[in-house]
Computed example of a mutant assay.
Amino acid sequence: MTILHIETSTKNCSVSISRNGKMLCLCEEYDQNYGHSEKLHQFVNWALEGAEISLKELDAVCVSKGPGSYTGLRIGVSAAKGFCFGLDIPLISLNSLEILGQTQIDKGFDLIIPMIDARRMEVYTASFDDNGKMISDIEAKVLDETSFQELADKKTAFVGDAVEKSKPVLNLPHAEFIEGIHPSAKQMIALAEKKFIQKEFEDVAYFEPFYLKEFIAGIKKS
Results as ranks from 00 to 15, higher is better:
65 K>F: 06
33 N>W: 08
32 Q>D: 14
131 N>P: 00
185 A>L: 01
146 T>K: 11
38 E>V: 02
47 A>K: 01
2 T>P: 02
130 D>L: 04
128 F>N: 08
77 V>W: 04
104 Q>T: 11
113 I>K: 08
126 A>T: 12
33 N>H: 14
107 K>L: 12
29 E>D: 13
139 E>N: 08
212 L>C: 09
17 I>Q: 01
118 A>W: 05
217 A>T: 15
144 D>A: 02
44 V>Y: 05
90 P>E: 09
158 F>N: 07
110 D>P: 14
20 N>T: 09
99 I>P: 01
165 K>Q: 12
195 K>V: 07
152 A>W: 03
123 V>W: 07
71 T>F: 07
23 M>K: 11
75 I>H: 09
195 K>P: 09
86 G>T: 11
35 G>S: 11
45 N>C: 01
2 T>G: 00
7 E>P: 04
43 F>S: 05
115 M>D: 06
135 I>Q: 12
179 E>R: 11
98 E>C: 12
17 I>V: 13
173 P>N: 08
216 I>M: 14
91 L>Q: 06
57 E>T: 10
222 S>V: 11
180 G>E: 13
128 F>K: 10
28 E>G: 07
45 N>D: 13
205 A>H: 09
107 K>F: 10
98 E>H: 13
125 T>R: 07
214 E>Q: 13
68 G>W: 02
208 E>H: 13
189 I>F: 01
74 R>L: 05
43 F>Y: 12
181 I>W: 06
156 T>D: 06
203 D>Q: 11
137 D>E: 14
71 T>R: 09
79 A>Q: 10
40 L>F: 03
15 V>T: 02
8 T>C: 10
208 E>L: 12
194 K>C: 07
202 E>H: 03
36 H>T: 09
144 D>E: 02
85 F>A: 03
27 C>L: 08
35 G>H: 11
8 T>Q: 06
126 A>P: 12
84 C>M: 06
211 Y>K: 07
43 F>P: 03
106 D>K: 15
98 E>S: 15
221 K>I: 07
108 G>C: 08
36 H>C: 08
53 I>W: 03
5 H>W: 03
31 D>Q: 13
2 T>W: 00
164 E>Y: 14
74 R>S: 05
28 E>A: 04
187 Q>M: 11
176 E>Y: 14
150 E>A: 09
116 I>H: 08
67 P>I: 04
39 K>W: 03
